[in-house]
Design a protein around this nucleic acid. Structure first.
Lengths: 347, 347
DNA sequence: ATTAGCACTCTTATCATCAGAGTGCTAATG
DNA sequence: CATTAGCACTCTGATGATAAGAGTGCTAAT
């Protein structure tokens, strides 16, 4: 366990701040002016040598200034940093952007990714509240004529999912009615997970009484059901990658960029909702492509409607203090907005 | 009007091919070996000087080899190139990818952009057949409970558009029925454009007889209607940009990349459906960001269901011959597939 | 414990040099 | 007259030398 003296701590803090803002290695002379106490550059050099021994800062070459190591950022984040109070202007932007009218949870969560990316100039990820407690609350089959039927599924959270299918011969509403009633009788009120399970086993058998050829219908129902039960993951500010990357190699840039389209890989990296706010720096991120970046994740809690996540991806040299303050504020605002939204469907 | 001798034509062709394949300026010595006739490098140099006077090829510096100018590519495309017969393997890929079952036109057209980008390694655009002749063939309002209603709109082409709305107080199907019947009576069978027009004028007045507060409903109907009437534009292989760009500047790359997300700007560049296959090279493209690239557009024709477009964006140094062959084949296959699809709704 | 001073290291920019590739021109050739 | 061999000339790109600037580590003095 590393313990730093007051002065060492101040020096590390100054190095992190300087490097984060200016992007250049920090030398002893420039630190003289920035530190609150009056010391010479030689003293600072001595202290820096100790910090280097501890592995908190490194040189880029033998006689260069120092930059924080991953361990240094870690120490800074864990022991030195204080979350910055969120800027009043930023808070207004958040509240205003979330204040509009939305028709879907997913719209809110997707928009959150965009706002957050605008505020930070980084890339952001948002995950809607977990669906594990979602229950099936309605199912409809709407014949549209022209060999087409739309299947609509509603959950108790107000989520609506639909899909249109082409069928061989036109059906009327009357023919579909017994099927819908069967679903209503047997499955309404069950968690989606249970419905998915039953779909594999009992339902096909029972349904055979109502329909001669249940396969087609089962495909339709299964398809729209799994659409509703899948996790939804949103990415904001993909293009911002170009602002904060120091990757020059176009090949690397491309694979990095395409990672941002692989929502399943990313969902793994972000991990399941946890506690509060987490900072992962450099190789602490479980994806080699991101080993030169930092990831801040925050879990927001919408009571019994589950937990969701927001995250930002940026350079290791990011203004952690401001970012963490911002995440905290966003987390609260988003949770509030969603609670508000759900209130409709709770009555 | 430029006319080239047989030999000059062969030299230009060889320069285009060499540069397209190798990416390096082409010198007189390397051409000696590639030309079918037996001439010395000095002769070729003389011919090249003439081609340069005509503005068909240029030097990158005083003593470099030559590369085709935009005018040179133009001449090559217009007078020399023969469309390459499409590779059997490629044709199979196209037919197989379009062979599956689709539930929507837009799925087919979107998938086309992806296939084409895979086959070419470039960026591709597709535009669904024009909707100007689309007519309204059905409208539904489905109450979902929980303050939600889904509006569904169907056109005679089988296109289905829907949107879910949150409403202040729950309505039953009975209350919505007169509205739906009103729409059915007054608007079914009309072109979407006419419906849009009427929505501005007569409808609000007439509707007042059925509903106390028609504004909410008009918003809903208008929203889903304009969704159905809007042009749909798909982009494939955005990431391929990194393969063929020679842009190094990250700022430029970023604005180029973000252009690929602005479907309306792009739709303008691609232009309305025209005749056959068109090649636009460098500054012939009406967008300054694309002045170092080439665009090949092709119009496909689905009889009375209108015309759509496919396009590929690549470097000016692209294998035009192969690309044009490919576009021709794709154009035919796509038109066939869509005719097939529409046959359902024509009965 | 702190500091001044200095030798040392490494980066970065600038400049000269040189081989390689290609051209244009001239004079010779069929 | 078209073609060709030969040669001087130009430009690129790689390599290496040089010098200024920034920063360090160490020593000796305070």
């Amino acid at each position: 366990m590393i313990t730093l003296t007051e002065r060492q701590s101040l020096i590390l803090k100054a190095i992190v701040r300087d490097y984060t803002e200016g992007g250049n290695p920090v030398g002893s002379k420039s630190l003289v002016q920035e530190l609150p106490m009056k010391v010479s550059s030689a003293t600072i050099r001595n202290e820096m040598a100790r910090l280097e021994d501890l592995g908190l800062i490194v040189k880029t070459h033998l006689s260069s200034g120092r930059i924080p190591s991953i361990k240094g950022y870690r120490y800074y984040v864990d022991h030195i940093l204080k979350p910055e109070k969120v800027d009043g202007q930023d808070l207004k932007v958040i509240q205003h952007s979330l204040g509009g009218e939305f028709h879907k949870i997913d719209e809110i969560v997707a928009q959150s990714a965009d706002i957050l990316s605008q505020l930070t100039s980084y890339t952001t990820f948002t995950l809607r509240p977990e669906l594990k407690d979602s229950r099936l609350s309605g199912f409809r089959l709407v014949p549209l004529g022209n060999h087409q039927v739309m299947a609509i599924l509603v959950t108790n959270n107000g989520d609506v999912e639909n899909q249109t299918f082409t069928i061989p011969n036109d059906l009327t509403g009357d023919e579909l009615e017994p099927v819908v009633r069967f679903i209503d009788d047997q499955l309404i009120g069950l968690p989606l997970q249970d419905v998915l399970r039953k779909l594999q086993k009992e339902i096909p058998l029972k349904l055979a009484k109502y329909l001669q050829d249940p396969d087609g219908f089962l495909d339709i129902f299964g398809s729209v059901l799994s659409k509703a039960a899948s996790e939804r993951f949103y990415v904001g500010g993909k293009l911002n990658l170009f602002n904060y990357t120091n990757q020059q190699n176009p090949k690397e840039l491309q694979s990095l960029y395409s990672l941002l389209d692989q929502t399943d890989s990313l969902a793994n990296v972000i991990g399941p909702p946890g506690q509060h706010i987490q900072v992962r720096i450099g190789n602490e991120i479980t994806n080699d492509l991101l080993k030169d970046y930092s990831l801040i994740t925050a879990t927001y809690d919408v009571d019994r409607h589950g937990k969701g996540m927001i995250a930002i991806l940026g350079p290791t040299a990011m203004p952690y203090s401001r970012m963490i303050g911002l995440m905290g504020a966003f987390q609260r605002e988003l949770a509030r907005k969603l609670l508000d939204y759900y209130r409709y469907f709770d009555e």
